[in-house]
Nucleic acid binder design. Structure first.
Lengths: 118, 118, 118, 118
DNA sequence: GTGGTCTAGACCACC
DNA sequence: GTGGTCTAGACCACA
């Protein structure tokens, strides 16, 4: 599972690419920009992008065509949605709500913030 | 600012101690358990606890009486509440809600989780 | 599965460490020499050893104690024996025997070589 | 020497062509299928086949008639048999038997596999 | 002291 | 041109 809150830079990059897939910026079987391009975009080292791609490949979110580039796996979006939803509902959300209660922040404030998002 | 989601272990420990203060488990001018005790509690190395205490001292959340131990600063809880509230409302919450939207999770699901918390 | 015939150097190093475990040079819960030591032993870069250890950790052949080092997992040898035996009998051996036939080398020559081994 | 276990794709292709010669699928002075055909057969890029042919030419296993194609050298099979036999008996076989011993696999299991081959 | 990450750049295989 | 591996060295967190 790739979560938001990865600690390493390559983990974060992997997550960012997952977000792009979730947002449909990279659709199934689309080619992902080249590793050198991504390195420039995110202003990180090229090898760090490679590490991110290794992670995504191991999770079967992307596949590789030798000498051509990386492509979004056919069912990547579905699997990501499933996995991340579960993670969010079981871990992230309860933890955040627990923290809200600790800070004396109520559901009303959360609803308000919800209206403001997006 | 000490936030939830600190990346380092000593950061996380610092945050956990803040939580104890927020929960009033450590009240103003209370002595915090000894460094060795905390190391045992959190199952980490003694030096890591020291680092956490350095952070808390720098933020003036605890103060030290040499040879005796660490104590909760008088206004620690208030300042923590203020700071963490601001952080939560401005950073954590918007980010989490943004992620929820991305995953197709609505306010209803969040409300539901809210009821279940606690 | 880590096989003999890994293509990358870090893969080969991972395999060499597996061999040491199979030979009981590293027993269960033994500490494996430090990454910098291994780098010197095998005359490779220190980062390459780290990659090998990542592989071994993912396969749960070694585990890590933070700041101390790597240790052989309790059941590493058994799992390695199982996995590698299966691989050997199903892939390596048939392929080698097929090649022998192709080269006109008979079972007698193989038996002879067997006597000479070890 | 072209061995089984070449690491590169063009090396593997070169080896596969050697096997065809050993199996007499390509006889002395026969024309080898065209580069584009081979690329299609092995599902690799045209340039990679060219590399394989360069290797085979350097080893004088094939020769080229420009504009016509590649042909099997007169004594290719004999030289291949000699070379590969030596390689097999001196390197491959001892290594495989060593591995078998390490895995606790005996000559009986090998004999058994031998009966099953072919 | 331990492991670990990131950067940088050389070099390679493949398309 | 693509991805990928290896080396080298700086820097960090943890025990």
């Amino acid at each position: 599972m790739i979560s938001s809150n990865e600690k390493t830079i390559f983990g974060k990059v992997a997550y960012l690419i997952c977000e792009e897939i979730l947002k449909c910026n990279y659709a199934a079987d689309d080619r992902i920009p080249g590793v050198r391009d991504l390195a420039a975009t995110y202003e990180i080292n090229y090898n760090t992008v490679i590490r991110a791609m290794e992670v995504l490949q191991r999770e079967e979110i992307v596949y590789q065509k030798r000498g051509i580039g990386y492509f979004v796996a056919a069912d990547a979006k579905e699997r990501l949605l499933d996995g991340q939803r579960k993670e969010f509902l079981q871990k992230t959300l309860p933890e955040v709500l627990r923290q809200a209660r600790l800070l004396g922040i109520g559901l009303d404030a959360i609803s308000e913030a919800w209206q403001e998002t997006q």
